[in-house]
């Protein structure tokens, strides 16, 4: 228990306004990230994982967003900070890496300027010092010719190089905490491997805490220490990576594993999760949110108010239905949803 938590999220809910009503995309989520630890958040689009990431950074448009709960960073609740106080945290104490390196960089600014912007915001450095530091950063993220890239525009770089620049921006002020939102989804596999290696190297050097948002279970297996599986705005399973991969329990986690081709060697058919991920407006708000996608499981096995249970040490599963879950028999398999 010597580790002090770097980031502690307590009962965070984030709701967005649609029409006149607010709908929670992140619903009562609690999560802890320690120093030098990678916590992956996994789920399909619409499960709330990106909404959670942007909530920590408070990058949602304020006029349409309501947040409740606590985001404690170094013991300070970020949700109670003013905009200008929050600006002092963003970029300095926490950085963010975005999914698409093409759109994440300003097309009209040189790479150097974009890296230095963050230093300008937070550090009192002379122009020469900033340039020196930018070149060091570019070198650190594995860009072969820093001097040249410093003066280039984003469109002059390849996708992999751009993502390296995005990472350089995120670590420009040596933050203690990083959020990586699908950092390799837009990249080719060989580039993905390079970027993942780079992130791991940097992480071990800088002892950063990282929240890694992804839908790719392979990336999680390569990167994460702990994994939170999200569905419909809630964490449905949480464990360290080895436990989760060797003993997935929640029906959603098990379904995910069974539907990816790389985990289904030799198996002719992939598992199909019935129905669709509900839209924000149609999220089930009561009972087990995954129950409607496993209709063959007896409804009596779900809890009325599903809670996270610690089923073994540091392995949490929501709802008791996992104890009775089995995959559908052939006859029920693959019912196309007719609408």
């Amino acid at each position: 228990m010597s580790k002090q938590p770097l980031l502690k999220i307590n009962n965070l809910s984030t709701s967005f306004r649609i029409g006149d009503d607010y709908y929670a995309a992140v619903d009562d989520v609690s999560l802890t990230v320690n120093e030098n630890e990678v916590v992956a958040i996994v789920g399909e689009s619409g499960c709330g994982k990106s909404a959670l990431a942007l909530s920590i950074m408070q990058l949602h448009p304020q006029e349409r967003t309501k947040m409740a709960g606590e985001v404690l960073f170094n013991g300070k609740n970020l949700l109670s900070l003013s905009v200008s106080e929050m600006n002092k945290v963003r970029g300095k104490d926490m950085g963010m890496i975005f999914q698409d390196p093409l759109t994440a960089l300003n097309p009209l600014m040189r790479v150097g300027q974009q890296i230095e912007e963050s230093m300008k915001n937070h550090l009192q450095l002379s122009d020469a010092e900033m340039k020196k530091r930018s070149l060091e950063l570019l070198n650190k993220v594995g860009i072969p010719n820093p001097e040249r890239t410093y003066m280039q525009y984003p469109h002059e770089l390849s996708g992999g190089m751009r993502q390296r620049v995005v990472i350089a921006i995120a670590i420009a002020c040596e933050p203690k905490f990083l959020i990586a939102d699908e950092p390799t989804t837009a990249l080719d596999v060989t580039i993905q491997a390079q970027i993942l290696d780079l992130m791991r190297d940097l992480q071990s050097q800088m002892k950063t805490g990282i929240i890694l948002i992804t839908h790719d279970l392979g990336v999680v297996a390569e990167m994460a220490d702990k994994v939170a599986v999200m569905y419909a705005g809630e964490i449905v399973e949480f464990a360290d990576v080895s436990t989760l991969y060797n003993n997935p329990l929640h029906p959603y986690t098990r379904s995910l594993f069974n539907s990816i081709p790389s985990a289904a060697h030799g198996q002719d058919r992939l598992h199909v999760i019935q129905g669709i991920v509900p839209s924000l407006k149609n999220l089930p708000r009561t009972g087990c949110r995954f129950s409607e996608r496993i209709p063959w499981i007896d409804s009596a096995t779900h809890e009325e108010h599903p809670a996270l249970h610690e089923v073994e040490k540091d392995h949490f599963v929501r709802c008791s239905c996992y104890q009775h879950f089995h995959f559908p028999k052939d006859a029920e398999d693959l019912k196309y949803d007719i609408s």
Binding site: L54, M57, L59, V83, S84, N87, K88, V89, R90, G91, K92, G95, M96, F98, Q99, D100, T103, A104, L105, N106, P107, M109, Q114, E117, S118, N121, H122, V166, I169, A170, A172
Partner: peptide, 22 residues
Amino acid sequence: LKDFVKTARAKGTPEKKVYSRH
């Protein structure tokens, strides 16, 4: 709504500069 504006905010750039610069 562009991503690079989010990047700018994530750097802690004040709102005024987010507008003028980006």
